[in-house]
Amino acid sequence: MAKGVKPRVKVPKTAAAGEAITIKTLISHKMESGQRKDSDGNLIPRSIINRFTTSFNGQEVLDVVVEPAVSTNPYFEFEALVPEAGEFTFTWYDDDGSVYEAKKAVAIA
């Protein structure tokens, strides 16, 4: 697991049934592109978050293939439907095989 990786997620705590909500996510990750060289001229190996997914109660919202052109500390903002009370699951997949997960519950107001 890469050092110091920490996810942040912003989701409203409550929503009306069927409401569209805005979600913002960010994870601290260096997103080493594989294009850079170290001070000795050796290529620094690629080490990135290569996929990010969001689901709600097991149903898919978004599935993103992430390439090295995405900035350090990758950020995604998108909109999701909340059909009923439940839980969002956010998952980030690291090149090194690590998987980082964050969950957020939403109640129906």
Binding site: G4, K6, R8, K10, K24, L26, I27, S28, N73, Y75
Partner: peptide, 12 residues
């Protein structure tokens, strides 16, 4: 504060 990436380091 969510758009500001500095806050992930405040969390750390």
């Amino acid at each position: 504060d969510f758009d500001n990436p500095g806050f992930v380091f405040v969390d750390v």
